[in-house]
Design a protein around this nucleic acid. Sequence first.
DNA 1: ACGTGGTTCAATATAGGTTC
DNA 2: GGAACCTATATTGAACCACG
Length: 436
Amino acid sequence: MPPIKNPKFVCSICEEKADGYHFGIVSCRACAAFFRRYVASKLKYVCRFEDNCEINKNKRVMCRSCRIKKCYSAGMKPEEVQVSRETPSKAQQSLSPNTNSPDDIITMSTNDAGITSQIHEISSTSLCSTSNAYQGNIYLRNSNSISPFIRSKLHQIIENCSVNYIFDETTLSPHYPTLVQMYMGYHRLLARRDQIFIRPFSNEGIRIYTLQDVFNVHKFANMNRLDLDGIAEMLEAFPGYKYLVIDEKVSLFKQFYSHFLILERIYESYRLLGTRIDDQKIVLVNGDVYEYQTMKVDIQEISDMSPEQVDAYIKPWFKIAPRKMLEPMKKLAPTETEMMFAFGYILWNIQENESKFCPETILFAKNMRSMLLDELSAYYKIELPTLNGVRRVGELMDLMNMTEKLVMQRNEHILLNKIFKYFKKDVFFHGLFDID
DNA sequence: ACGTGGTTCAATATAGGTTC
DNA sequence: GGAACCTATATTGAACCACG
Ligand SMILES: [Zn+2]
Ligand SMILES: [Zn+2]
């Protein structure tokens, strides 16, 4: 520490009243905190102008890049920033290594790439992307389209998935083993639904699906929340998914879920409610059946949505999806194996330009799609040699396209937000996902 | 007790989405 | 199509805490 405190009352960086030495120089607390945060974080700042912005009390937040540069040139020492004052054990917890993946598994590398060494290289930061302008500068952010809130919830759910599938080699078809494993995962989901949702039986022991009239949004969200775990467990049976690193799983899951919600509802409605073409009824995962024309929405408990919003929220489910997809689904009458192909395809159908996936995952997904097509082709040859397989695949693809359009229209993340936020206030489900 | 570094959190800024 | 609004998230900085 320099012993003398003469010019002390002014911050060396922003000229505000200083309060003493910070990281080796006289500065204010604000600049000290700014510097500490910068050193501790993985942020990079890029000046949008000439790298010579004026920094003073009023302008210090105008350009982060020049502010941090001034911190360094004024002599702030990054090595005096402590890693953490917490106990080492806690500090280690926040880093989540993925060490136990086999060699043939895709490893994630979306974050952390080369960012740790930027402390002494401020001048080289102009390399980073210019996606987000902020007043006088540009800074990097996690450009993932899943909100941190949803991501953390899904992360928890997927991480807590402890299901282990044991596949008996002898029962797996050598020609389309992937589809068979997915089939087993799906049936596990169906069995799970039978357990957790109370559904009525007829006297003959046949499950009956009865048309409901009152629709409750909370109940709907709760039900979907309960099913979420089952879907996460199902995916563990999908070959190729299980050994992905958790962040890639979360991204895939989010995308898959959006499509699965729609496509599987249409499929189940066809499978369980019969094949009458003009019937527009939809069966939900708990066995309740609704029809848009006859359902009455219970808006008593909904304080955060107007009736119009509620209508806009349920319309895609109960009006648009059935109208556009039920008829093609019923005409096609897909087998379960064909549906497994469709489910697999929507899981792996990620586009090249999607920045939330790392290149390895995108390539892997492409290979998975090819494999699914190969297996479906083999399935047709062996099991359905008399049908026109090409045409059926085309019609399946049409259904997936319609699903895609619906997903685009309706911003699934709003639904996920609703699902989790309803629960946030729900004491009964508090323990389900650690809400503080 | 002092000085300085960490932590917390309310206030504020930003980006991106929605609506009209 | 775009301005004006809305929301979720990120950043800031002051107050407070910890520790030698
Ligand atoms: Zn300052
Ligand atoms: Zn600048």
